[in-house]
Each structure stands twice: as C-alpha cells, then as structure tokens.
Design a protein around this nucleic acid. Sequence first.
DNA 1: AATCGTTCCTGATAGC
DNA 2: TGCTATCAGGAACGAT
Length: 290
Amino acid sequence: MPELPEVETTVKGLQAKVLLRTFVDVWSDWKKMVKKPNFELFKKELQGKKIIKVWRRAKNVIFDLSDGYSLLVHMKMTGHLMYGIWNMKNNTWQARKDGPLKEKINGYLHIIFFLDNGSQIALSDYRKFAKVELWKTEELLTSKEFNSWGPEPLEKSFTLAKFKEVLKHKKGRIKQVIMEPKVIAGVGNIYSSEALWWAKIHPEKSASKLTDKELKSLYDAIKKVLQQGINLGGESFADYRNVEGEKGHFGSQRMVYKREKESCKRCNTIIVRKKFGGRSAFFCPKCQKP
DNA sequence: AATCGTTCCTGATAGC
DNA sequence: TGCTATCAGGAACGAT
C-alpha cells in the first residue's frame, strides 16, 4: 500500500518524465474514480492543461497545472501511477521510449491520461479505491480537507515538540493514532509497524501513556523508517510499483511488517500479528512489551 | 472532542 | 474437486 515513501517515489519518477507536458485526453473504464468534477467535465477541463509541478502532500500526488488548476491523485491501497507508452493494439507498454517492451499491459489500468508527446500516465488499481480530483489550486489549498492533514514528518518544521503537540489528548492505541492522517501525514500500516518496533513500543499502548523517552524514540523511528523507505524506492510487498512498473526495495529492511511467525531480528522472539481497529499490527512481544 | 464502525472493491485463501 | 464465505486495508464520513 502506498504510504509516504511510495508516494514520494512516484512523485520523483513523474517529475523526471512529465513536467511541462500537456494533457490531451483521458480514458477510463471506471469513471467513478474521478470524484471531482464528474468524469465528462473532468475530461473537458483537463484538456490543454500543462503540468507545471508535481509534488506530494500526505499520500496525495498533486500535479499543479496551467490556468490555476491542480490534479490530485490518491492511490489508496492498491493503486499506483505508471508512465509509459501504451500500445492498445498489441497489448504492450514501454516505460521509456528506448526501454524494453513490457510483455503485457497491466490488467488493472482504470484511468489513462494521454500527454502531448504521445506518452501516457496510467492509474492502475485492482481494488479501485483510488481517487482522482481536479481542483482550482487556490480552492484546494484552502479546502477543509487539505488543511486537516497533520504535519509532514520529514519536514524541518516537524520537531519533537510538534510531535508531542499533535499527540496531546490522544488516548487511543499509539499505532492507530500515528496512522491517523489528521495527526501525522503519510504514515500507514507498514511504516507505523516498523517505527514502533525500532522504538520498542507496543502498538496497543495508549498514546497518552508514552514516556518522554518513548516519544523521542518514536519520533526518531518514524523519520528513520520513512527516509529509509524513500532511499530504497518504497515497499512492494503487495501491489506498489514505481512509475516504470518496478518494485521498491524496502522489503529487505522490514523488521516486523508481514513477518508474523518469523523471528525478531533483535531478540529472536517470534513476531506476532494482531488485528485491532480493523487492521493488522505486527510486533515483537518481547521487545515491545505492553 | 475523540473514537468507533461502516463503506468502497476484488483476488486470494480457507473451509466444507 | 468445486463452490461459497471471509479477509485485507486508506481514510472520509456518520454515529456515539
């Protein structure tokens, strides 16, 4: 599932490919993925808009366009954006003009954006939870939703004091709290599990019960695992791929996520998987005591 | 105000 | 063997 490092990897990949390109058309076989405005209007309004900037806020990919518009894409759980040249006739695609011809078009492409140089950006999503929205930039930046998201954990302004401030009055389980978009941006199931392992904190511990030492450890761990994720091009345990359709390498660094019944790399204890709040937490019952 | 349950999807897997 | 039931999971939203 794309979290901050995966979205960041996607953004970097797109920056290298699509800056200053202009949208000429859009195709979709699942039009309700476009939430704003309706698909027909979306298609009409997007045509002729030039991509000026590609950036990330929380887990959203944002394309700033000409005429004061912004295109927002949230990949949710199983989505990923790919760039390339699709050949509808023989069902193939190339990530680069001079690159190898990939055997088959990914079977889950639900939106394809056609660019003015003959290339395309495609949104693949087998669970169809992804969302796409076209905003006036000013409206997006001042919207309730945009301003509800928590701080960016890798920005300088995210200090330890800021971390403590956002956790204030939070009594819920720490894992669920740090996964909440309104608390901190970009942290999901993978990186919350990993950060808690590094910080030696049990995922079900109440956020309000963390000691100062634990808060500092967790703060450091969140930044550490996210940066490591970016450095390794994200995690591809499930569906995530970069814009060229390739896997990320964070998997090799996973300490707990999806490692239940394997041994803890610190103390050899068997890693446990426990579901709460509708999600699976992975942790070492010895290193991360309740 | 904080927290919990529901909703959107479909491939994989468990159970019979 | 083949069918059906269950599950995963980001995050907005409504209910409590």
